[in-house]
């Protein structure tokens, strides 16, 4: 089989999986959307926005809007997960605030080794990006058995980030 021993996926495979995933998302009323640029295949990404709330130690509830973007990481040849959160005024949360609201179920030490704020390769704005270093291994292990690569990939992310994915994806 083609590229049998390769740990990475091609941009075409990513776009194919993304389109397929969007069909499933629509079917299960998950609100992912696909954004494509016909001229630049690498600019294809899928996105979901939702509100998340956080209750602080004084029981005060804060409401944030979260944006999740899955894009194709050219350097690693795998899908990458990125996100941003902002408050009602539109101000983006800092890395420290993201950690504090425990959107991610992860220890402080691990958090900083997994999440980095950097300029987004597709959006050209600062985003929090989950480091793709371990993605390749796992994605490649499932590439021929997986129903959809994006779903396999989300299976990797959900232990870290509460994404409230519908069970129908079969995660």
């Amino acid at each position: 089989m083609r590229r049998m021993n390769c740990n990475t996926i091609t941009p075409e495979e990513f776009v194919y999986a993304a389109r397929d995933f969007i069909e499933l998302s629509n079917k299960y009323f998950d609100s992912w959307t696909i954004h494509q640029n016909d001229n630049e295949i690498l600019n294809t990404y899928i996105k979901k926005e939702e509100f998340v709330s956080h209750r602080d130690e004084n029981d005060k509830i804060f409401l944030y809007r979260a944006e999740y973007i899955i894009f194709y990481n050219l350097s690693y040849g795998v899908p990458s997960f990125s996100f941003n959160l902002w408050d009602c005024s539109g101000k983006l949360l800092t890395l420290e605030q993201v950690r504090e609201i425990s959107l991610m179920k992860i220890s402080k030490e691990d958090f900083y080794s997994v999440v980095t704020q950097q300029e987004h390769p597709v959006m050209y704005r600062p985003y929090f990006i989950i480091h793709p270093c371990h993605t390749a291994k796992i994605v490649s292990a499932f590439r021929y058995t997986s129903r959809n690569l994006i779903i396999t990939f989300l299976g990797l992310i959900t232990p870290l980030i509460q994404l409230n994915l519908p069970l129908e994806y079969g995660l």
């Binding site: 809007r65 902002w86 009602c88 539109g90 983006l92």
Partner: peptide, 10 residues
């Protein structure tokens, strides 16, 4: 209503 502004608005 509670107003909620997206950064892109600004």
């Amino acid at each position: 209503f509670m107003s909620f502004v997206h950064p892109s608005f600004w």
